[in-house]
């Protein structure tokens, strides 16, 4: 089940917009300055693209989604309130857009973007968290992607924002509408679930590898 869309309003006490580096540009855009919007785009295009690509995991649709997100942002500037810094607001719009996309695409089977052949019997492993049995023999990009895809959209969103976009806990809270403590707990549980899925797939591989 996909997570509901994130709330677009609400005061988030952990973040103050006073020292928002984007605020001057945002105000210019609100007065109709297209050049300011382009500057905002160049400032945030890489981060938003990275977030969308790693959350949605359909590389072929990422450019379209990013265009649509920025178009939506441009058309919604009138409703933007500087109570919230611009970047969390932008990422919140992006998150909701990605969730909508996944909701519409839910009926279709998920595909894993991979540069390698998808062979379930191939030997692979990720570094074991306990460090007891194995060290990294082969860190398979596509299988790491599979682990990420198996998580719920909410868990995946938290991990992508934290580990790939390297946003602060406060910003993640502002984007997802969660309190700081809930973000920490959510991240911890997402990691635990990812580890459980890894161990499950590892057991599955061992079971397949055993002679009948």
């Amino acid at each position: 089940m996909l997570a509901p869309s994130l709330p677009m309003s609400g005061v988030l006490p952990e973040l103050a917009a006073a020292d928002d580096p984007d605020l001057a540009l945002v105000l210019r855009v609100q007065q109709g300055d297209a050049a300011a919007f382009e500057e905002l785009y160049y400032r945030h295009q890489a981060g938003v693209s990275r977030m969308v690509a790693n959350f949605v995991r359909y590389p072929e649709v990422v450019p379209d989604l990013v265009q649509e997100i920025f178009a939506k942002v441009y058309l919604r500037f009138d409703s933007y309130s500087p109570r919230l810094p611009f970047r969390p607001w932008l990422y919140r719009v992006a998150s909701n857009h990605c969730l909508d996309f996944l909701r519409h695409r839910r009926r279709q089977p998920l595909q894993v973007s991979t540069t390698m052949e998808d062979d379930p019997t191939r030997e692979w492993t990720l570094p074991d968290p306990a460090g007891e049995r194995m060290q990294a023999r082969l860190v398979a990009r596509d299988l790491a992607g599979k682990l990420l895809l198996e998580l719920s959209p909410r868990d995946r969103m938290l991990l992508v924002l934290k580990e790939i976009n390297e946003l602060s806990l406060e910003e993640i809270g502002a984007i997802t509408g969660l309190r700081l403590s809930a973000v920490k707990v959510g991240l911890f549980r997402a990691r635990k679930r990812m580890l459980e899925k890894y161990r499950k797939s590892e057991r599955e591989l061992e079971r397949r590898g055993k002679p009948q």
Partner: peptide, 20 residues
């Protein structure tokens, strides 16, 4: 250990795209 492991997984899974 869990945090370090999940960071490695996320880095391994990271996809890079060119913005439009």
């Amino acid at each position: 250990a869990l945090v370090n492991w999940s960071r490695q997984v996320m880095l391994a899974a990271e996809q890079n795209v060119t913005p439009p």
